[in-house]
Every structure is written in structure tokens, then in C-alpha cells.
Amino acid sequence: MHLINLFSASLEITSVQIIYTSALGILFGLVYLVTKNLTVTIISHTLIDFIAFMADPKAIFGLGHPTVNLIDFVFNLTILIIFFAYAKLFLKKINLKKLQKNWN
């Protein structure tokens, strides 16, 4: 859904948003696997959006012309890579077959 921002934001801004939301998606997925409670992830997402809005309302509505420097981009990409690695280790540890059995 964040690809839609390409209509109002630069490729750099949209790329960072996609990296950031992918990392959060992995984190929220892991939280759901552990808690089996979607409410926790919904509240977390709401709080993150609220804090972002309070920090810079213009950025939420796509106003202004924000820019992304290389350091911000690399930092966000590093976070995504760490989250992917953690998710892989986490899923390996909990034994995916056991998890699927519990869902049925």
C-alpha cells in the first residue's frame, strides 16, 4: 500500500517507507505468533502512527518536500536486515510444524 506514495513523494522517501513498514510487518507478525492476539499488533501500529503524526503532521499527509539522505536509508535498510535475520532465527527456534499443528 505504501507504493501509492510514489504519486505524491519521491522514490527515496517511498523506498524508506517500504523498508520501514516491511520491518514493522515482520515484527508484528512475530508478535502475533507469540501472543496469538491481533489486538496487540493493532494497538502497536496505532501508537506508532500517532507518535509519527505528533512528531511531524506534514509528513503524514505528504505535505512539504521531505528528503532522505544516504545515512537514513542505510540505517532503515540495516533495521530491515536485522528484523529478517531475527524472524528467521525465531521461526527456526519455535519449530514451524509445531506452530502449524497448534493453529489447527
Rank of each mutant, 00 (worst) to 15 (best):
M1D: 01
M1V: 11
N5A: 04
S8K: 07
A9I: 02
S10I: 01
S10F: 02
S15A: 15
S15M: 12
S15E: 10
Q17D: 14
I19V: 15
S22I: 14
A23V: 02
G25F: 09
I26Y: 00
I26N: 01
L27E: 13
F28I: 13
G29E: 10
L33V: 14
L33P: 09
L33T: 12
K36A: 11
L38Q: 07
T39E: 05
T41P: 06
I43P: 07
I43G: 06
H45T: 01
H45S: 03
H45P: 01
T46S: 06
A52H: 11
F53K: 04
A55D: 08
D56Q: 03
P57M: 02
P57Y: 02
A59S: 07
G62D: 01
L63Q: 08
L63H: 07
H65E: 11
H65I: 08
H65L: 08
P66E: 05
T67N: 05
T67G: 03
T67M: 08
D72Q: 11
V74T: 06
F75V: 09
F75D: 05
F75E: 06
N76W: 11
N76L: 10
I81M: 12
I81P: 00
F84M: 09
F84Q: 11
Y86T: 01
F90H: 08
F90S: 09
L91E: 08
K92A: 14
K93Q: 04
K93T: 05
K93R: 15
N95C: 06
N95L: 05
L96N: 02
L99C: 02
L99T: 13
L99F: 11
Q100E: 12
Q100P: 02
W103R: 15
N104P: 00
N104E: 15
